[in-house]
């Protein structure tokens, strides 16, 4: 698993470097009060985090597109490693840039204090939501992979998978309802619930990946 992960990091090092560098660059610019136009702060209090976020997602998107177009799953499935390791490496690699951006945001927040007004105390909730998003994308890709392999049985699988997604989404709705009660018990602790749900969904997406009937993409 780690060999696959290391290869992915090494292969995408420039994209990852850009994701790494961006928050630091922006934070540095803020610290020294760079001006884009005379009298206008380049790094407005909220604009910078939006820019960092969009920039990071752009690079993450490029990396995932490349992974898909180069049929990375197929390449790895042919190697003498268990499919579950491929699923885990894919998950860790997917989570890494997101987690990194949030951790860097958190650190810069700590260092620069009140200059950056971002709701970073909810970092686990944000991570959890990002994990959920990633798991959702992975699940959709796994379901889509059945398209090349479709017969009646697979149709049922697709319908079943969509059903599972609906159940998950419904559970989120229940989750939202539960938050006030949870808050009463643990105060501002719902971010942990999001984080936990993110991990559960990622595990589910790994399970679906291992059970895939095709590794041609």
């Amino acid at each position: 698993m780690w060999n696959l992960f290391k290869a992915e990091v090494s292969y995408n090092k420039w994209y990852l470097f850009m994701i790494l560098a961006m928050p630091l660059l922006f934070a540095f610019g803020m610290q020294y009060g760079f001006k884009l136009i005379t009298g206008v702060d380049f790094f407005e209090k909220y604009a910078w985090s939006i820019l960092v976020g969009l920039g990071s997602y752009m690079f993450i998107f490029i990396m995932w597109q490349m992974r898909h177009s180069e049929r990375r799953n197929m390449q790895h499935a042919l190697l003498p490693i268990p499919i579950v390791d491929i699923a885990l490496a894919r998950m860790v690699f997917g989570v890494l840039p997101f987690a990194y951006v949030l951790v860097v945001l958190s650190i810069t927040h700590q260092l620069l204090g009140e200059i950056i007004e971002v709701q970073l105390y909810r970092i686990f909730a944000q991570l959890g939501l990002l994990f959920c998003g990633l798991a959702f994308i992975q699940l959709m890709m796994d379901i889509w992979s059945l398209k090349t392999n479709m017969n009646e049985k697979n149709w049922f699988l697709i319908i079943g998978s969509i059903g599972c997604l609906i159940v998950f989404i419904s559970m989120f709705a229940v989750f939202e309802i539960l938050i006030p009660a949870y808050r009463q018990l643990f105060r501002e602790g719902e971010e942990w619930m999001f984080f936990l749900w993110g991990l559960i969904l990622l595990t589910a997406s790994n399970f679906v990946f291992v059970k895939r009937s095709t590794f041609l993409q």
């Binding site: 197929m74 499935a77 042919l78 049985k153 895939r212 009937s213 095709t214 590794f215 041609l216």
Partner: peptide, 8 residues
Amino acid sequence: LTGLLRPE
């Protein structure tokens, strides 16, 4: 044969 597709 190579496990890229699972047979029915």
